[in-house]
Design a protein around this nucleic acid. Structure first.
Lengths: 134, 134
DNA sequence: CAGCATCCCCGCAGATACTG
DNA sequence: CAGTATCTGCGGGGATGCTG
């Protein structure tokens, strides 16, 4: 994910899509966030129900704690994920989608579903491609 | 993009994450390809008309020749982009979308449009978020 | 439990040079 | 023109250790 947005590096240098002078159109960053490796999975999981941190971590599987944290923070900052930290001991934090997040999740889900549905064709294309140069 | 699939590692390095051999679902790679920095822009440009290599390069803007080549090769291998190399001198190569590519482009375009349309809300959310911790 | 801080590796992507 | 080949940096992200 282009999570480290504030740490000064980000997205692609765009050409004619670079409306600001910064090298990257801002919406590209959001696209980057929602389509990022863990962003996709987080959005899809949370579109079913809310999760606690570790619970979400287990649900996704093999995501490092660091990356899950970063992903959630980025999505929260973008207003896609709602973070509800209850002041109890031990700490309990629930994550859910905002309305905006639900829209994003749906988009991502559609795209994700499309790729799954077309995998057969893609793999066939790959075989043809690879074979043609062996 | 994790373009260099043939050179043994892909997008999000398959080997790196896919330790158990079943970790990364294959469709994730296609998603990665179409939503990659240059993948998105290539699909959107080509959804309007076909382009020659350098022409496409200029249209997109600050993409290095190397990255454009890699992106086009990956998308071609996935069966999304059609490459038509005419045997003339000087060389002329036309790139266009396949039917599958057109479907992908439409998906990406939708997602891309959504992010642009929601940027105001996202930026508002960011201000709120940032302010709450200053 | 839910994180933050630190270290460190390696692979993406930019720059440069060369070819058919 | 449309690529290929090679070198290099630097930052993403996994691993580990610590805190409230």
């Amino acid at each position: 994910m282009g999570v480290s947005e504030r740490s000064a590096r980000v997205g692609p240098p765009a050409g004619k899509y670079d409306l600001d002078g910064e090298g990257t159109c801002p919406s590209r960053l959001v696209l980057e966030h929602v389509t990022s490796r863990w962003g996709v999975l987080v959005l899809i999981e949370l579109s079913e129900r809310s999760y606690r941190f570790s619970e979400l971590r287990r649900a996704i599987g093999r995501v490092s704690e660091k990356m899950l944290t970063q992903t959630l923070q980025t999505l929260e900052r973008d207003g896609l994920v709602h973070r509800d930290a209850k002041p109890v001991i031990p700490p309990r934090v629930d994550y859910s989608l905002t309305d905006l997040g639900r829209e994003a999740a749906e988009q991502v889900r559609t795209l994700s579903t499309w790729t799954r549905d077309r995998m057969a064709e893609v793999e066939e294309a790959r075989r043809t491609y690879d074979e043609a140069r062996a």
